[in-house]
Structure formats: structure tokens, C-alpha cells
Design a protein around this nucleic acid. Structure first.
Lengths: 207, 207, 207, 207
DNA sequence: TATGAATGAGCGTTCATTCAT
DNA sequence: GATGAATGAACGCTCATTCAT
């Protein structure tokens, strides 16, 4: 029992550090902050960060993987849901990502800015994980093509990149306040991205 | 005449340094390389880099702006071409960007990786310039909506982000060799991105 | 207790660095030495200097202020001692300064050479502190004039400068070994400077 | 004739550079300015500074020696003037120095700040020259002692240091605007310094 | 578990000086 | 004489990481 409590306390400290890291990374950027900034924000001595993590990088890796794995699981699960239309599936992926930002904008900012867009550093480290998302989306598109719901004029792989690229670009625009992001904008964005990718901008089909 | 030659020689050295910087930035990344790496690659003395540029950052800024301004001019010019369909305009923008990569993949890698995707550093520095591209594209979409060629179910601003995001995501995939990029892939990509954004993935309209 | 020991050890290291800096600054001069010279002399790692001080400049500032504040306190205290003649007060100031040199010639060399005479760098930084000394001396002269012990043919402000200038010039001469500085010279210098400033060089009065 | 003119033009350029250097050294300090600052101020290409001078240091050396040699000659000449009282001789030395400042405050600032007070750099380089001034003054005092005009309670060498120290301290105070320096202050200072050193501050003798 | 003192490699930048023209 | 491009050595400071307590 005492042991359990102690383990719990340790887990709490670890969580405390991770949460502080999100705030610091979001505010200053990974490279612009020092390990001591994270420790200060968490209210712990900075040697403790090294007790729970091997390095500053591992802190970011942890934050990224915790969240990204949820996304991957969600995409995989969607892929299996035969009753949903492909449009609905893409809508749910966009929803998941945009809602993640709505609920924890700092964490998503860190993931996007410091990992998925950081092509020369963490983007490279986590390339495989990031690709898994593209591949999951591509599988959904591919299946839709096989079932005749999406045409085959565009390769599934490519379509996945376009879809994900559109989503990430919108997130980036929010992060840097280039695009307004009030409550209603989140839901509008979901519609827009799916509308664009599924129906296109041309007149005719969607009216 | 002697003066002209001297000036020419100086301009050449400056160009030599810029070209070397492209190679070094592409190979090692901006933050991972030292100024001496650039000087070595250019075959000039360390200090000469500082004779022509105020800082390492200014070297990157110069590379980015040289190329980005061509893109902006090109978008502005397209916007005015009334005889072109919006689809054709978007096609030409994608062409310009993809061909830029085809002709100078190292430079485009630097611009994408170190500037437009580097949200926390140079992406922020050049935010305004980058936005100008989005705005130029948005103007094209807006005009197409006004003229009834694009439907108004998606805001022009948003459509521009989606289009640019798709393009950049494809470039990033090439840069990191996540997507094959033989000669034929470049032209296919142009078609795909325009097809996706203009006609959508749904069956029906485009067949 | 353990904590006290740790704090003590830290304070010792800080002192070690300050003491080493005195030797290095005295030997090589502030600008001619590198931070690594200080660290080497102190037998600590390079970075530790920056753990205790923000910059190389702060090391010198600390050395200067530590000692100069003692001088200022001493002058202020003398000013209040009504039973002492002004000549005695000036004698004690000269004594204090010359004895400081006798007991720690390296520290005084650093203070004089790198701060009070370094008119373009640290002398400017610490101008106010240095002036406080002049003003303290001037107050002593002024009081002596008010009480009829010093004549008013010379302004107190000016007299203070002349007195301090004479003292500093003698110190400088010692520092550069332009003037002999055996044990007996220190006491002789005290007499001389006070004799010169109080009685003057003219024959008549002092015989 | 043409040759003379050409030599003259060259001499003018050299002078132009020296005069510019005075302004730049006075404004920014020797170490805080670049050779190109001097060239810019003189309106010449900065390679030209190296045509006329071997180094940046030589420029300062030249400025110092040009003026200091006049001072030394003047002191030597005074020493021989048997008809003048020692007080009058000291007065003339103080006059010469203070008037030098009155007529060319920038040059004197450079000489005092960058050379005579710069104990660790140029003060050391020119130590012998600077000492010659002390020795010249000391010779005047010594002669006055031998002739019974000054008492022997203070060594001549020491008296010279005290006198020169007082003069330099007053100059320094003017340079850094610690002491007012209107036109009337220059003449008052001459009186004060001689009064202090010759008659002393004590009441009695001078009234 | 928790602390923070201690370590030291790494790099951008400055600028006096040289030299080809 | 005059120019300014070219050279390259030198150094203060940062900060991730280690480790004794």
C-alpha cells in the first residue's frame, strides 16, 4: 500500500513534468527552452527531469507518442468500420485532430510544430510513426476506391497526403493565428476539409 | 571596366557562398551546420561569409526571399490572367512549385524544411511573406467563386490553405523519400493535387 | 547540517573563483585574459564561472564593489568622528588605501588599473560609486572649512579630487614599479600625501 | 614642384586620418572603434589607414607622442628658467595641460583616457615617456628644494606624482563631466591645483 | 526520490591586417 | 596612392548532462 502510494507519487511527478513541458515547449519552443525552464514550470529541481527521462528529447518523444498512438489507434479502428462512408471516416479523423487542438491547443501545438513539421529533427526521428498515419488514411481511401465510392484518378497514397496536409496546414494557421479559431471555426473546418477533399471546389456536384 | 570586373568577381563570390549554403543546409540542416561548413563548401575563408552577410540567418533569409518572391510574383500575375480557368491557375501554381523542386531539389528542401515548415524559427520570421502566398491563392479562389466557377461552400481563405497544405505535404514526402519522385511523379502530382482540390475524391463528377 | 555544508562548499567555490580572478586579472589584465584562464587558475571547470557569475564582467564588478564599499563605509564613518582633525581624517583615508595595497597588492592593482583608471570601460560603469568616494572626501574638507581648519581658497570638491588623484597616482607608480615600494615606503607615502595636500610644498609653515 | 605638391597631398591625407582618429577615439574609445570607423570619419578607404600607419595602435601612438613631446619640451624649458619661482613653473605646467584641454578637448581626452590612464595597455607602452614628465616636474621641485623655496619634508619624486596626479584627476573629472568645465573653471583650476600643492589646505600660511 | 553544483564541448561573430588590382 | 575584398585567429557564453550528497 505504501509502495503503491509511493509509485503513485512518482507517477504524479512524472506527469507533472510532462504537463509542464507541454506548456514550456508551446510557449518557447523545444530548442528555445532549457531543461531548467521545464523544471521551474513543474516546480521541481531540474535534476529530477533526468530521473524520469533520459534526456530533454525523451520528454518530447513521450508527449508525441502518447498522443499520436491514440490517433493511430483511432484511424485503425475507423478503417474497420464498414458501415461508415469514406467521407464520414475522413470527417471523423479531421474531427479527432481538430478537437484535440480544441481541447489541448498547447499539446497539439507542440506535436505539430516540434514534431510533425520539424522535418529536420523530430519529424525525422518519428518518420515511421508519422507515416503510419498517412498509411492508415491511405488504406481508408484505397478501400473506398475498391468499393467504388472514391474514383481512382488519384492514388490513395497521394490522396492521404493531400488530406493530411490540408488538415495540418489549417492547424498551423490556427497555431500562428493566421486564421480565426473561435468555437464555431473548429466545426466549420471539419466540414470544409472534407468537402474540399471529397467533393472538390468545382461547382456542380455538391449543390 | 576593371571596376566592373571587380564587382562581378565580388558578386560571384557572394553567389558562390549562397550556392554552397544551399548544399550545406540541405545536407545538414541550418542548425546542424556551422558557418565554417558553408565557407569550406564554398572554398572561401570563414570571414568572407560575414563580409557578404550579417549573419548565418541572413544567408538563409536571402535564399528564401530570392525564390519566394518569384513565387509571389508568379501568383499575382496568374490572378490577373482572365482567360485562364481557376483550375488552370491552380495547376500552374502547383507546377511552378513542383518544378522548382525538380530543378533544384536542394534549394526547395531548404525553403520548405528550414523556413515554411519551421514554425518556431524562420517560419515565424517570414510569416508575412508566407501568408502573402496563401492570400494570393485565396484571391484566385475568391474570383472563381464570384464568377461561379467554384462553389461557395468552402471559404476562399480555407481553400487556399488546403491547396497549399496538400502541395507542401507532397513536397515534404519527396524530400524525405516517403513518396517516389521519379520524373513522371512530378507531373502526376500536379494532376493529382488539382484533381483532388477541384473535383474531389468522390465518384461522379470527374469520370 | 548537510545543507549548511553544501552551501558552505558552494560559497567556497565562488570565493575560489573570485580569488583566482584577482590573480589572473592582475597578471594579464581583464581584457587580456580568457574566462578559461580564471577557471584554470581556480582549478574548476569552465562552466562553473558562469554558474556563479553572469559574465566575466560580473566577476570584476564583484571584486570592485566588495572592496570599494568598505572604503565608502570607512570614509563615511570618518566624516562623523568629530574628535579627529581633518588632517588626521585624510591621513586615515590614505592609510586605508595604501594599506589595502600593502596587504593585497593584486586586488588593488585590479581595482585601480581595471576600474578606477579604466575611464572608458569599468570606470564608466562604476562612475557613481567612484564619485561617492570623492564626495565623501569633499564632505570632510567642507566640514573642515566650515570649522576654520581648512581655508576656503580651494573648493572642497576640487581639493577632494586633488587628494584622491595624488593617492591614486602614487598607487599607480607602485603598481608599475616606477616608485620603490618597500615596507617603509607605504608609511612614508601616507605622510607625504597628507603633508603635501594639507601643508603644501612651500617652506615656512611646516618647519 | 609637382613632387612637393604630391608630398603635400599625402601629408594632408595622413593628417586627415589622424584628425579623424581623434574624433573617433574620443567618441567611441580606442578598443570600441574599428579601423573602418576611422577611415569612414576621414572619408577615405580603410586600406589607406594601413598605407600611412602600420597598425591601429600606431595611429594612437602618433597622436600621443606628437602632443606629449611638446609637453616634455615645455617642462624642460621651464626647468631652465631661473627667473621663475617654482610656484610659477608649476602654474605654467598646469596651465599648459589645462589649456590643451580647453583648446582640443577631444585630443586630450584620448591622451588621458587611452594612454596615460590606460595602465594595462598604452600606458605601459609609453611608460618611459610618461615618466619623463614626472621626472621633469621632479627636477623642478628638487631645484626648488635645493634653493630653499620648497621644504624637503616630501621627496621631489613624490611631490611630482602628487602634482601630476591632481592635474590628471581634474582633467578626468572634466572629461566625464563630473566637474563643471566652463571657461572660468579652467583658470580657477590652475590656481587651485597650485595653491593646494604649494600652500596646502591648512589655514595660516596663505591668508 | 530529490537536489543543484559541476562539467566542458560547441559555435556564432568580430575585426585587425594583408594584398591583388 | 588608393581601394575594399579576402583572411582566419580568437573568445565569451550556453546548456544538456552527470554525479555527489
Amino acid at each position: 500500500m505504501a509502495s503503491t502510494t509511493r509509485q503513485q507519487a512518482a507517477a504524479d511527478k512524472r506527469r507533472q513534468i510532462l504537463d509542464a513541458a507541454v506548456r514550456v515547449f508551446a510557449r518557447q519552443g523545444f530548442h528555445q527552452c532549457r531543461v531548467s525552464d521545464i523544471a521551474d514550470e513543474a516546480g521541481v529541481a531540474y535534476g529530477l527531469v533526468y530521473h524520469y527521462f533520459d534526456s530533454k528529447e525523451e520528454v518530447l518523444d513521450t508527449l508525441f507518442l502518447e498522443r499520436w498512438d491514440v490517433l493511430l489507434a483511432m484511424i485503425a479502428e475507423l478503417d474497420a468500420r464498414e458501415e461508415l462512408s469514406p467521407r464520414e471516416k475522413l470527417y471523423r479523423i479531421a474531427s479527432f485532430i481538430f478537437d484535440s487542438y480544441r481541447h489541448d491547443p498547447e499539446l497539439m501545438k507542440v506535436i505539430i510544430v516540434e514534431v510533425t513539421r520539424a522535418a529536420n529533427s523530430f519529424g525525422l526521428t518519428h518518420l515511421t510513426k508519422i507515416q503510419e498515419a498517412y498509411q492508415g488514411i491511405a488504406r481508408i481511401v484505397e478501400r473506398a476506391q475498391e468499393e467504388g465510392q472514391f474514383h481512382t484518378g488519384v492514388s490513395a497514397e497521394f490522396a492521404a497526403l493531400a488530406f493530411y496536409g490540408a488538415v495540418e496546414q489549417v492547424l498551423t494557421a490556427w497555431i500562428f493565428e493566421v486564421l480565426p479559431h473561435g468555437e464555431e471555426d473548429f466545426d466549420r473546418a471539419k466540414e470544409f476539409v472534407v468537402e474540399t477533399v471529397c467533393s472538390g471546389l468545382d461547382v456542380g456536384r455538391t449543390d
